[in-house]
Design a binder for these strands. Structure first.
Lengths: 146, 146
DNA sequence: TGAATTTATATCGCGCACGATACAAATGTT
DNA sequence: AACATTTGTATCGTGCGCGATATAAATTCA
């Protein structure tokens, strides 16, 4: 058997697994608020800057509209945001937070520290996290271009 | 706005994005073989050790049977593996590679190096990869226990 | 101006992930 | 032996991701 095909030698399997496990760690914190992790990401984008186009949000999350559109629709149904159809440009859809969407920010503000303390528990110190972040950023930037 | 809620400060968003982008990088390499990335993972598990129970595979990949079962069924339909129903224990399902499943190993053996050279292109050297791997392993081991 | 092209978003289909549930075989217990 | 519990796998429903396609509005260009 080829060494390079061993699961333990795969960076990608690690990223894939870590991503799933962290999302699972978020679940009990987000579910009481009726949020999924991707929906939480959309909210973070809109909290940084409200009233963005579908494409702006998609680009920020490195996703495509075919993922974002149904997600936004579900969030609109939940009353977290409103989608306004083309004012200037008839093709565009503007996404704006509702009061409910704004208020959620208060309720989730402690979730990040809650998670980082979970990770710190078994040895991911702040320095490691910084190094990790910059390494992953290099990976993301490399692949983004292609 | 709370600093800790900025997207750029989220390790999880990085892992989530990197995982997706690397899976996308695998796609053009795996698709000609009719494989998805999770299916490729299952094959790696079986190449390491053939004839494993559904649960063995699931545990190795840190997934659950409700994800694995339909995936294995699709792979059985493709003729990559066979699922044998309970010999010793009537509840168990044994998963075994077919000749076709075995042979695929030859065809994918260069994929890992193909990917790591893509990543090396913009500055992920072997050392960085090793550090990254061990950091992510710590994260995975921390979350696995919970 | 009219036709071709581009752009912004939406729709469709499929394959994961995963919580919840089902179910039958095995095991334990009285 | 009869019943309860555990275990191994499967099924169901929902929400992503994403390739492919559609569609309508805007832009370019002949």
């Amino acid at each position: 058997m080829y060494d390079q095909l061993k699961l333990d030698n795969q960076i990608c399997f690690r990223l894939y697994t870590a991503s799933r496990l962290i999302t699972q760690a978020y679940r009990p914190l987000l579910e009481p608020l009726g949020l999924t992790y991707p929906q939480y990401l959309v909210l973070m984008v809109l909290w940084e800057k409200d009233n963005q186009l579908v494409n702006d949000i998609a680009r920020r999350l490195l996703l495509d509209t075919n993922t974002i559109t149904p997600l936004l629709k579900r969030m609109e149904t939940q009353g977290l945001l409103v989608r306004t159809h083309g004012i200037v440009d008839g093709r565009q859809t503007l996404v704006s937070l509702t009061r409910k969407g704004h208020r959620l920010q208060e309720q989730v503000k402690n979730i990040p520290s809650c998670l980082s303390s979970q990770l710190a528990a078994n040895g991911l110190c702040a320095d490691d996290a910084t190094t990790l972040a910059s390494t992953i950023d290099r990976i993301i930037n490399t692949l983004k271009k292609q």
